[in-house]
């Protein structure tokens, strides 16, 4: 082998391997949800934020916890309740008598990984405090701007909107999340394993960090060099145009959503160990990217998911 004219050109210094290891660690905690776990990592690599939406008890929090563990960054969990105030998230300035000045006490948002549990139970004012931070990477408190740490990754969970005691996130704020998915019930085999094996919480405690913030930043940078061919850009544009056709949805995907689709596809290709995007990457990431951004035209009986897969089947691959 070494006598041949072969050279390994791009050095990943093992971080790519560690990334894959981290993914399988999460997979072993959250059983039978490979696709969703993949999307969660994809979201992280694409510098996006994740919205997990499902009924209580299917493992939303477990997924977020496991992610936070293996990512190995500084991690905070914020449980959203209807009486949570913006200052509880952002932090407060407290007057110090001895120094005769205000001192800023950063809130939980100043962490690299944040689990915003049940984000739709808080009031819109509190929700927007978090979401503004997610959008801008910085928060302004009393005319002072504080930069949020980097990498900055928010995983929010949300109960289905029809449950009582929730304040639905407005469309403009849903757009802050790169991807969203629901976990759904586990399949019988996975559920059986869940029942017979060890408690997930203890398993989580034993899981150690496999990546560090530097790794994540480097991996995010790696993703940006993934090649996207011209014809796949055509394909992305075709998909965007199709969503804007009013026979499907109320409003189509925005150009920002198009950019997000490109970023997420690159991240997915990177996770698949490829240095170029293929149509399947786009197709796989498209439902998670668009389901919280699109609402079906009234009068349709199909769910958004069904609508989206119907749409995908209408656009030929270039």
């Amino acid at each position: 082998m070494n006598s041949t004219v072969i050279a390994s050109e791009r050095g990943t210094e093992g971080r790519h391997e560690r990334l894959l290891e981290a993914r399988s660690a999460v997979n072993s905690i959250l059983l039978g949800k490979d696709m969703q776990v993949g999307l969660a990592f994809c979201c992280l690599l694409a510098r996006g934020h994740l919205l997990i939406e499902d009924v209580p008890g299917v493992g939303k929090t477990t997924l977020a916890h496991a992610m936070a563990r293996v990512i190995g960054s500084d991690y905070q969990r914020i449980q959203f309740t209807s009486d949570l105030l913006p200052a509880d998230i952002l932090g407060v300035s407290i007057y110090k008598r001895e120094k005769d000045e205000f001192e800023f006490h950063p809130g939980p948002i100043f962490s690299q990984v944040i689990l915003a549990d049940e984000v739709n139970r808080a009031t819109p004012k509190t929700q927007s405090a978090l979401l503004e931070g997610m959008a801008e990477g910085q928060v302004t408190i009393e005319n002072e701007t504080h930069v949020l740490p980097s990498p900055f990754f928010v995983m929010a969970t949300q109960n289905p909107l029809d449950l009582v005691g929730t304040y639905p996130l407005p469309d403009s704020q849903l757009d802050r999340f790169l991807l969203s998915f629901s976990l759904g019930y586990p399949d019988p085999a996975a559920e059986r394993e869940l029942l017979v094996t060890e408690d997930r919480a203890r398993l989580l405690d034993r899981t150690s960090a496999l990546l560090d913030p530097q790794d994540i930043k480097a991996l995010q940078a790696d993703c940006e060099s993934i090649h996207v061919s011209e014809n796949l850009l055509d394909y992305i544009q075709e998909l965007l145009r199709e969503t804007r056709d009013d026979r499907w949805f109320e409003t189509g995907l925005s150009p920002r959503a198009g950019l997000a689709l490109l970023r997420a596809s690159r991240a997915l290709a990177f996770l698949e160990n490829r240095d170029f995007v293929i149509p399947e990457d786009i197709k796989n990431v498209f439902p998670a990217l668009s389901r919280h951004r699109l609402s079906p035209t009234s009068g349709f009986s199909q769910s958004p998911e069904e609508q989206i897969s119907e749409l995908l089947s209408q656009v030929p691959i270039p």
Binding site: I278, E280, K283
Partner: peptide, 9 residues
């Protein structure tokens, strides 16, 4: 196959 299928699919 379908025209909307990627090659790998």
């Amino acid at each position: 196959g379908l025209p909307s299928d990627g090659a790998i699919e």
